[in-house]
Design a protein around this nucleic acid. Structure first.
Length: 283
DNA sequence: CTGTCCGTGGTGCTTCACGA
DNA sequence: TCGTGAAGCACCACGGACAG
């Protein structure tokens, strides 16, 4: 493993350049505190040593992040990683970090550039050995039109009027909804707006299929809009149904009307839903 | 029967007007 | 000009209706 700090006060530019990142990337990231992770011999991305934050980096950040961080990538997907402190330093929780590794299909030659953007928010850029950058969702060698885990995704079949489940109100057929997702592994469902749209209900089959968990009622969450904006929401439990308040503001902000259909992609931390990413359908 | 939608009452916030 | 109170509006919570 190597950590190379790129904060002007902490940087190690010679080592940084050895990673074969493009010169432009090197220069433009010097303004924000950054560090790099790459594998040493005998390590893999799920090694505990890969989950640690560089000690000097944590020191320089003060108390900006103590309990959790949010890792964002260029294609606007993000992962929340809870942190734990032990005698060796500040680590990301194994389950959260492993999910990041799995979702991004990290290879042994990959290089990650962590840039501290604001408080708990980090941008993570993924570079291949030759310096090329991953800029879109890594796919597991499948054509993009093929849904992930198709054989084990009745949520997909049901939401599209599959034969094994009855059709549900408010869940219209969307042609190939997976193509809207930023991360094809994320749970998702389709939502057709009805007359009253103050609450977004999460369908139980989605919850069951993906084994989802929800924060306690009134826990803060986010709606991630197509234009990159974020709106606040809160978890609710109405009559045993998991749902999110703040949906009315989303509908207004996106100018959604009765009959419009959107794809709701659920962003998870572990199995807990922490955000709903809203995708408008192509006309 | 289950699960989602819809309608309505309640609550809280914001804005405006009036009085000191 | 500032403070207070009333009115209006938006959103939330919940229970009943209804579709599958």
């Amino acid at each position: 493993m190597q950590f190379i700090l790129t904060n002007p006060n902490l940087q190690n530019r010679s080592s940084f350049q050895e990673t074969m990142l493009p010169e432009s990337e090197n220069r433009e990231n010097l303004s924000s505190p950054s560090f790099i992770k790459s594998l040493s011999l005998g390590q893999n991305w799920k090694s505990k040593s890969m989950r640690i934050f560089p000690e000097e980096f944590v020191r320089s950040a003060g108390e900006a992040f103590v309990h959790r961080v949010v890792l964002s990538v260029l294609w606007n997907n993000s992962w929340q990683c809870w942190l734990q402190q032990d005698k060796n330093g500040l680590f990301m929780v194994e389950e959260d970090w492993d999910e990041f590794v799995d979702d991004n299909l990290l290879d042994t030659d990959d290089i990650l550039l962590f840039t501290h953007q604001d408080t708990i928010y980090f941008q993570v850029r993924i570079f291949k050995k030759d310096g090329s950058e991953i800029t879109s969702v890594p796919l597991e060698g499948e054509p993009e039109t093929q849904p992930f885990h198709q054989e084990t995704t009745p949520a997909f079949a049901s939401a599209n009027g599959g034969t094994s489940s009855r059709a549900r109100k408010g869940y219209a057929h969307v042609e190939n909804p997976k193509r809207y997702l930023l991360n094809p592994r994320n749970p998702y469902f389709e939502k057709t707006l009805t007359k009253t749209n103050t609450v977004l209900y999460v369908n139980t089959w989605v919850i069951e299929e993906y084994d989802l968990e929800f924060s306690p009622p009134n826990t803060h969450m986010h709606f991630l809009l197509p234009d990159g904006e974020t709106l606040d929401g809160y978890t609710k439990d109405y009559g045993g149904s998991h749902s999110f308040l703040g949906w009315a503001a989303v509908c207004e902000r996106c100018n959604l009307r009765t009959g419009d259909t959107v794809v709701c992609e659920l962003e998870l931390s572990g199995r807990v839903v922490v955000a709903v990413r809203v995708h408008l359908l192509d006309e």
